[in-house]
Amino acid sequence: MLELQMREQNSHPKPPLLLEIKNICKSFVSKNSVIKAVDRVSFNIHKGETYALVGESGCGKTTTGRMILRLLDVDKGQILFEGIPISGLTKRQLRKKRHTIQIIFQNPYGSLNPRMKISTLLAEAIVSRAEKPSHIRAEAERLLQSVGLGKENLDKYPHEFSGGQRQRICIARAIATHPKLIICDEPVSALDLLVQAQILCLLQKLQKEYGFSYLFISHDLSVVRYMSDRIGVMYNGRIVEEGTRDEIFKNPQHSYTRLLFASLPTLKNADAFAAAHIQKDTETCQKVLRQGKEHSNQKVEVSPTHYLLADQ
């Protein structure tokens, strides 16, 4: 299986670059302290690829996503989208470019304007396209059907839907602009497990259909394993390890990555061993936390696609 995939990767030339992130930094200043949310983060996303950022809450993965959307400005570093630095765009140019990167938020209850009908919500996304279609309502019906909802839902308001259905509407809205990159910011973590699986399948189906790339932000390793081609493990604002999905899952090198796997509850360790595991994990975690800020800028290469940051 692994061999097969590696052969596949080797036989195809890499698709062209879509997004290049070079050493971006972002700090938040509060009254008494400066918090480095994102610190010297670099990675690339190719066309049609799914890149996952994993890490615990507060490690800076959402901030990274928001900077790519330019909902936040970078302090240092550069974000190139199709070779164009997005921080150099004026407000006007930016608004014209917006439709090429979309986002699906974590909380489907907060990401749809409660005062708009579904038809309006979809229509305002459709008209953001570079080329507007002539029949907006027909297009909205088609979009709704492609995310598995019937066209009879067009005249309803968001509060009439369940969480999973709302997330489908959010997805329909995101793909409505024909984007090249969709940032999925924990898109399934607010949903129950059965619905999670349905939404993930839908995301994959749509990717095959439209060929856009995903930046998949998550703390849930099983979700990441299902979705991603390549993975960056984030810790304390830095990417501490990056590799293809199989490299990360089969051969995790960094102690924090290993900790993430150790803390993954499975049916096996959910019984009597659980207590012992949690104890061990906490100790490891504390050890890792102590090491926390001592990462050097040195990259240790495991394979051409797999590297980790060296501990000092």
Binding site: L71, R95, K96, K97, R98, I103, G110, S111, L112, M116
Partner: peptide
């Protein structure tokens, strides 16, 4: 809220966001 951010990401103008 995230729904206002979603409108920003769609490239909507401030006037549009204020009124709608």
């Amino acid at each position: 809220t995230e729904y206002v951010e979603s409108a920003e990401v769609l490239g909507k103008s401030n006037t549009y966001i204020i009124f709608r």
